[in-house]
Nucleic acid binder design. Sequence first.
DNA 1: TATTAGCACTCCCTTTTGTTGAGTGCTAAT
DNA 2: ATTAGCACTCAACAAAAGGGAGTGCTAATA
Lengths: 344, 344
Amino acid sequence: MELDERKKKILQAVIRNYLETGEPVGSRTISKYTDLNLSSATIRNEMADLEEMGYILQPHTSAGRIPSDKGYRLYVDTMMEEKERKVVEMEEMLLERQDKMETLLKQVAKVLAQNTQYATMISAPQSRGAKLKFIQLSRVDAHQLLAVIVGEGNVIKNNILNVEEELTDETLLKLNILLNTQLNGLTIGEINLAMIAYLKQQAGIHGDIVGEVLDAVAESIRDEEDLEIYTSGTNNIFRYPELADHHKASELINAFEEKQLLGELLQDSRSDKENTGIQVYIGEESSVQSMRDCSIVTATYELGGGMKGTIGIVGPKRMDYEKVVGTLRTIQSQLDEMYRGDKE
Amino acid sequence: MELDERKKKILQAVIRNYLETGEPVGSRTISKYTDLNLSSATIRNEMADLEEMGYILQPHTSAGRIPSDKGYRLYVDTMMEEKERKVVEMEEMLLERQDKMETLLKQVAKVLAQNTQYATMISAPQSRGAKLKFIQLSRVDAHQLLAVIVGEGNVIKNNILNVEEELTDETLLKLNILLNTQLNGLTIGEINLAMIAYLKQQAGIHGDIVGEVLDAVAESIRDEEDLEIYTSGTNNIFRYPELADHHKASELINAFEEKQLLGELLQDSRSDKENTGIQVYIGEESSVQSMRDCSIVTATYELGGGMKGTIGIVGPKRMDYEKVVGTLRTIQSQLDEMYRGDKE
DNA sequence: TATTAGCACTCCCTTTTGTTGAGTGCTAAT
DNA sequence: ATTAGCACTCAACAAAAGGGAGTGCTAATA
C-alpha cells in the first residue's frame, strides 16, 4: 500500500491533534479539523490503512487513534515545520555575563525547562578539547602540592597532589617552567602518557620526585572524565499523565538523579551527529530503558575551541517537537553568540 | 486527664504499629500486640482518652487511630530507643579516601539514602569557618588574574579576576607575599572589609591597581555563600503512598531540585542546636511548606576546624525515627573519625 | 470500681451493575 | 470513490450492594 498525499495529510492531522490534546483522535475530529472536506467514513477507511501500515494505533477497539513510534518518526523527519522560538528570560540571563561555567549551564537548563515545560539536562563541555593555557604547582603543605590547571575559556581544574619527598623551591620553580613551556598550547586530550614520558626525560636529573609529580599532574589532567551534568525541571514529568504514574516517574527521576545514564545518552548523541547537531530519539530509540515512554531531543552546542557539550530535553512522546527543536536552535545560537561576545 | 504509664504504653504501641504498617491501628490489634493483657474494649476507652488529649486521631469514624504530630513529638522526645546503626557500604566508602570534598559528600548522601530508604541531603561545610592556608595570584592573561585560595582541609576556591591595567611581575610577587603573610591563619569569615582596607594601606605606593585586585580577592573569598547542597534518593518518596500522589511528589521533588529551601532548612537547624546536634522536625514544625506531610531529621557534622555542615533526611511522618537517628549518629562519628584520620 | 463481653452502628473499600457516549467497521446507496 | 446509516464495542463514570474492620455504648462481671 502506498502512503499517498492524502494519507500523509490525515496522519499529520492525527499527530498534530494528539500532540495538543493527548487524547486518541477520532475520524469525526479529523473530518472537521482538516480542509480535506471528507466525511468521517472516508477518514475511517484511510485511518484503517494507516494503522495497517503501522503509523498509528488504537489503544483499544472503539477508541480513536494515536501515533505509533513509526508515525512520530515520519512526522519528525518529514512533516514538522521548525521555527525559531523566542526563549523567555534568555536575554536577562545573557546580560549578566557568567564567568563561571557551572552557573551558566545551570541557568541554561533552568531557562530551558521553564520555556519548554519538559525535563532538561545539559552536559558541561569536555575539557579535553580545550587548549592548556596555564599550569602551576604550588606548595601547600610539606607533603602536598596544589596543581592548578587553566584551559581555554578559563576552565579551571585543581588538584591536591601528595608527594613523598619534599621538593625544594628550586625544583618546584623548574617544574613549573618545564610544564608551562612544554605543555602550553596543547589540548588537554593531547597530554597523554607518551607526552609525560618525554617530559620526564627532559627533567633528567631530578629523577624520581619529579617523575612522581608529573604522573600526578598527568592524572589530574586526564582524570576528570566524570562528565558533569546539570538537570532542571524534572518535576515537569508530572504534567504528563502518561509519565506520571508512580513506577515510571520514580524510574525517570532516578535516572535524572543518577546522571550516569544521562551521560551516556548525551555522549552517544554527540558522536553520530547530523549536520544540524540536533537529534530526536522517540521511545525505544534511545538506549535508556526508563525512558522508553519518552522522547528525547538533544542538541550539541559549542563554546568555541572544541569545547562541545550537549543539551537534552526529555518529555512524553507527544512532546511539542516543533517548539522543542526551535527552542534548542535558539539556545544554540545564543550560546554561540555568547562565546563570540567573550572573544571580542 | 493524666497521661499515666498505661496510656503511654498504649500510645507507644499505636505509634510503633503505625510506623510499621502505615495503616490506622485498631484496639484489637493493640490488645494482642502488647503484653498488657487488656481486652480491646479497655483499649478502646484508653484510646478515646488519648484522642481527647490530642496524641492520636481518627482519619474517620470507625477507623483505627493514627498518631498526631503531638503524638509523634512525644514519641521522639521520650519514648524512642536510639541505637547505633550499622551503615552498609560505609566502610568501603571510607576506605578509598576522598580528597575531593564534593565526591565525599555525594557519597555520604547516597549511602544514607540507600540505608534509610528516605530522601537525603547534605550541605557542604561553610568555608567561612576554615582557616586560610594559602593564597596565590597568577597571571593567566594580559588582563586576567587567577586567584587560588586554599583553606584548611584543602578547600579550594578559584576565581578569575579581570584587571584593567597590566601588573608587573614584581607587583604580583609583592602582592602574593603580602596576601600570604597578612592573611595566613585567619578564617575566611574574618577577612572582611576592614581587613582589606588595612591591607590596601599596607600596600601603600602601588595604589589603585593593587586596591582593585585586593577588592576582587576579597570578593572572591567571601562571595561564595551559595551553600552547596547534594541530594540523593529523592525517588524514595514514591515508597510512601502518603507522599506519592502527583501534587505532593511534584512539590517535594521541586524542593529537592531547587535546593534553595533545603538550604534554609539546613541552615536553621544548625543554629538552634541541642547538645547532640540531631534535630527532628515533624510535619508543620519545619518551615518548608511542601514538606508539611513529612518529617525531617537533621544532624550537624563537623570535619574539624569549624568546618560544619548539616545532613538532612526527609521521609513521611511515620518514618523510622529510631533507625534514622541511629544511622545519623553513626555517620556523624564516622565523619569525625575520618577527619581525625586525615590529621594523623 | 475497673474491666470486659456483646451489640448496634458507622463508614471505607471493593465489587457489581447499569448507563452513556465516542468511536469503529461494514454495507449499501450515491 | 465517497458517504450515509447502522449495529457493535468498550472505556469511563455513577449508582448500588455487600463486606469488614473498627468504634462507642451499655450492661454484666470480678
